[in-house]
Simulated assay, not measured.
Amino acid sequence: MHKLARSLSLIGAIVAATLIATATAASAAPARADGHRVTVMVHGFDREADISCSGAWNSARNLLNGNGWGDVVTFGYYNKATNCDLRLRGTTDTRIQEVGRQFAWTVYYLYSSKDIAIDVVTHSMGGLVAKAAIEGVNRYGVGKTPPDISGLTVDPDDIGATDWPRDWPPFLYIEDMVTFATPHQGIGSALVTACAITHEQCSDMRPGSGFISWLGKQPQSQMSTDYTFLASRHDDTVSVDSATNKRTAHHWALYDENASGGTLSHTSIRNTSTGDWQVEYGGSASEEGESSTYAAPLVRMMDGLYDQQAQ
């Protein structure tokens, strides 16, 4: 059983019974805290739809918990996903935009409507889900009157059963987002092309798909959102340009080898917290990247969530 800290008292209440919440209109966006926000973690695509949230995020979660982050929450979006604090019972045919809409309402219901800002950490397709939540709100929710959701009940193990309003929330407060190996520009491999025949989420992830074209680069939540994209030159699933969105993030890092010649795969980049790594890094304010010895990806994740403005 995961240790749930103060923000998860909200979730504990709905686990015990069901949480009834009354949304209020936002008075003003929360100020940047550059500190230990509630952090929500979103996993990536899984062809069998049976990913374990704890298995995907144990290394990252333990590191955050050990360094002052008490409020770390996992969000899963498959019906066979296990050990998730919050779960949408979707399938690999649930379009990424719809997963993003469900994620947006979940974040709004638990946090934004209560003027609580959060940070988000994602792996692979999870980054597209989180960005879709912000993009959908910006396109279809902003400017609308906050809905009365006081009569809703939410089961954290079946988020999709909630009778959400049919459109999108009116605002979201997401301060920082860190993505590991996310295909911001899609995945052009033959494997994904074949997968797209039978799995709608793979179809969405093809370069130039309607979804990728709709999504945009770094959509901003209503308190602005600072992005850090972490990628590996040795990722055999997502290209360098896609994982860094052609180096357009506020902060990006492209990992090569460590001192022993070790490399990071599409999966291991989200689990690695030790070693000195050769990395090219930069940001949207830089004309080009620099190369140097750099901290491990999970350490850089913490930088992306804490005191980012000083980076």
Rank of each mutant, 00 (worst) to 15 (best):
W164I: 02
G283K: 11
S189P: 02
L230K: 06
S113G: 09
V178E: 05
G44M: 10
I187P: 00
G55P: 05
Q185T: 00
Y227F: 14
H251L: 11
T106L: 04
N258Q: 05
G262W: 10
Q309E: 15
F75P: 08
R47W: 00
A285H: 12
T162H: 03
T18M: 05
Q308G: 00
Q185P: 00
A194C: 02
Y227Q: 08
F180T: 02
T94C: 06
Q308H: 07
T198A: 11
S59A: 11
G289H: 10
N79I: 04
H184S: 05
A21P: 09
Y78C: 08
E98S: 12
T82A: 13
V178W: 02
T91D: 10
S284E: 04
S124A: 12
D204C: 07
H36K: 13
Y227N: 08
D155I: 09
A190N: 12
A190L: 14
A29M: 00
H2K: 11
V299F: 00
T267E: 15
S150D: 03
D163I: 01
V299K: 13
F171G: 01
D236Y: 06
A26E: 08
L19N: 05
T91W: 07
V40Y: 10
G208W: 00
V178C: 01
W277G: 12
T145D: 14
K217Q: 09
V73W: 01
W69I: 09
A249E: 07
G141M: 06
K3P: 00
I149F: 02
N271P: 00
R95H: 05
W69P: 04
A16E: 03
G151L: 05
S286K: 15
G76V: 06
E200F: 02
I187W: 04
T225R: 09
I174H: 04
T267I: 12
S224R: 11
D176V: 00
T179S: 12
V299A: 05
S232P: 01
T272F: 10
G275M: 07
P219V: 06
T274C: 07
L110P: 08
E280T: 15
G188D: 14
Q97P: 00
C53E: 05
M41G: 10
D119T: 00
R233S: 13
L152D: 01
A194Y: 07
T122S: 15
F180D: 02
A25Q: 15
N58M: 13
S189W: 03
D241W: 12
S124D: 04
L298H: 06
V120H: 12
V121N: 14
Y140I: 01
C53A: 05
D226K: 11
A25D: 12
H250T: 14
N245V: 02
R47Q: 09
G216E: 04
S292N: 15
T145R: 13
T248H: 08
I51C: 01
Q309H: 14
A295V: 08
G208R: 01
S260D: 15
V129H: 03
A81V: 07
Q185G: 04
D119N: 11
V154Q: 06
A49G: 07
H266T: 03
D119E: 02
D241Y: 12
A25E: 14
S221Q: 07
S221N: 09
G35N: 14
A26I: 10
H266R: 11
M205C: 01
R89D: 07
T145S: 15
